[in-house]
Design a binder for these strands. Sequence first.
DNA 1: TGTATGCATATTGTATTCAATATGGCAAAC
DNA 2: GTTTGCCATATTGAATACAATATGCATACA
Lengths: 245, 245
Amino acid sequence: MFACPITRRPPNMKSNRKESAAADLKRRVLTLECPPGMPLDEVELAQRYGLSRTPLREILQRLAGEGYLTAATNRGASVTSMDLATMRNFFQSAPMIYAAIARLATEQATPSGIVSLKKIQKKFTASVKKHDAGEMSLQNHHFHAQLGEMANSPYLAPSLERLLIDHTRMSHRFYRMSQPPSVTRINQACAQHDAMIAAIERGDPAATVAETIDHWELSRAEMDKYVIPDALPFDDFAHSTNQQV
Amino acid sequence: MFACPITRRPPNMKSNRKESAAADLKRRVLTLECPPGMPLDEVELAQRYGLSRTPLREILQRLAGEGYLTAATNRGASVTSMDLATMRNFFQSAPMIYAAIARLATEQATPSGIVSLKKIQKKFTASVKKHDAGEMSLQNHHFHAQLGEMANSPYLAPSLERLLIDHTRMSHRFYRMSQPPSVTRINQACAQHDAMIAAIERGDPAATVAETIDHWELSRAEMDKYVIPDALPFDDFAHSTNQQV
DNA sequence: TGTATGCATATTGTATTCAATATGGCAAAC
DNA sequence: GTTTGCCATATTGAATACAATATGCATACA
């Protein structure tokens, strides 16, 4: 359907242990179930997914290529770490790539691509209503990954994927918060998704880009708070317990 | 030295058959010795590089992740093809990424990074004087890959790498031409490299970006000619034999 | 007590073997 | 004459067995 040089295309829909193992590993990395820097034991993972070390090692290689893991010779694989040095780069590069992807996705959108995007957005909305933080985070990831597929750019896609990995991991705590202010902002983000879909449908690249910038600014503000959180209230310690730093 | 999440770091300098095999495969792809779309035989490659299929398959996975190869389940790996559909994307995306990398490389350049860049440029200049087309192409690739390393951006690096793969393959014929006009342009490109190094050394990002844009325009013009070559001279067929389309 | 060295153990890397899937040719039927 | 199904062969995928390398601890020496 879409060009995708990395992921292998399953020729049939038979039970694919290898694919599902890779997908589960990705999920665990994105949801911080496997935190940054965590070393991965080959034999443990092989047992967990019911396959031998050989195919599992090939999965690790692939995920390393996609940026989820980092491989070191004779020292195994570990979850790619998120040091502060690269954070600066993240905030520098993300808007440019996101905007470019938004434009290309609008210009090159196909009907089936829009249908997929709407399906994902539906799941995202549902998870927002259910207050399912993990699912929100994952569906938001899928939404933006789908935009990447619709942009149909083999050159920008790999950068987008790497940005999304860290974006999802950083904003994870954002979705976990269920205080009123965060709920409002999550609804805002959800509405922005809808606006992006609408702009794509009417073929208005400038609007999609504008919505994308707004969406980014909202997310960036939240991440700023995570990196540099609000000071704990020093006049009322009772309130500080909910202020998830 | 520099962060590099994909490529495995050899902990010692012992003879590393696996690494050298991967490097040679990359070289063969970049120099079109393995043309786009060429299927790769696992057993043949394993024999060629003197290792068994297991480690060779891991190399193929990695190179697929980096964009050199494309893997299809149960159907083996093949050299990533260059269809005209993606070419459009290439010309759209390349200037943006190249400019961003040029800026970051200037801002984050380290003394050792500049030293490496100069070494590569020295090799490039030498290959230009020796009219060694293959070496020119490879060293030009290394030059820009080194700029990518100096930019030190794990998010933009993967896109730059993919762009460079196809850029190197597309401009390969450019370097093979030894007619006076092309020689002039190759010298121009070489001078632009020098100008970029100078701009980086005096910490002038705007200048590096400007030189990068010029460099891109020069290269783009050449590639345009390859995609839409000059009409063959219809008044003098003797000259047409050298006009490598 | 602090450091260095050697061994035992654990983990990773590679080769070989076996199983699953795809490919191409042949034959039979329409 | 063309097409379709089947079988033989080739190629890929996975598992086991084995080799190489790294890690941690214990011991010896300064």
